[in-house]
């Protein structure tokens, strides 16, 4: 399916949910509304798009400029060799979004990492807890307001480290 047809399909299929659709070389970039995430992702996984591989799932803290968090999903289609970047903007206070762990199994750990680093809550995630930082760590390190060098003393059986 040619690139122009694909953009048409996106806009036709997700007309209510798409905020913006554009191209970046061979790949596509789709910005959608948070409510439409599961529907759009489910359709992207199936015919005729077949984006069956979830390459990556991450977040960017745009609270300073756009007062929102931006979730970024990278999907890949093994059949066509095309990538798509799906972006979703979340409000800055109490950010939460549906979990795609039911669609792709690696989303389980990826969403735990985003929760650990940014504090985004994933609704429907089977076991949302920290993955990279230790239990008892307070705060979300990759947020822009967390200083790089803040050290939290870690007490271990009475010995402070």
């Amino acid at each position: 399916m040619g690139p122009e047809r694909l953009i048409e399909e996106f806009e036709k299929g997700f007309s209510g949910e798409t905020v913006e659709a554009s191209r970046d070389g061979k790949d596509f970039i789709l910005v959608i509304r948070p409510e439409a995430l599961l529907r759009v992702m489910g359709s992207l996984k199936e015919d005729p798009f077949f984006y069956r591989l979830l390459l990556d799932l991450t977040c960017v803290d745009f609270r300073r400029d756009a007062s929102s968090f931006e979730m970024v999903y990278h999907l890949f289609s093994l059949e066509t060799g095309r990538r798509i970047r799906v972006k979703v903007r979340l409000p800055a206070d109490a950010p939460s979004i549906d979990s795609v762990a039911g669609l792709w199994r690696n989303a389980n750990w990826l969403e735990r990492e985003v929760y650990d680093m940014f504090g985004i809550v994933f609704i429907g995630h089977p076991d949302l807890k920290r993955i990279l930082m230790y239990d008892g760590f307070e705060g979300f390190p990759l947020r822009k307001d967390y200083p790089l060098r803040r050290r939290q003393p870690k007490a271990d059986k009475g010995n402070a480290i």
Binding site: Q152, D156, K157
Partner: peptide, 9 residues
């Protein structure tokens, strides 16, 4: 790392 330090001790 801070997570591993208790294990080291």
């Amino acid at each position: 790392t801070m997570k591993l330090a208790p294990v080291l001790k």
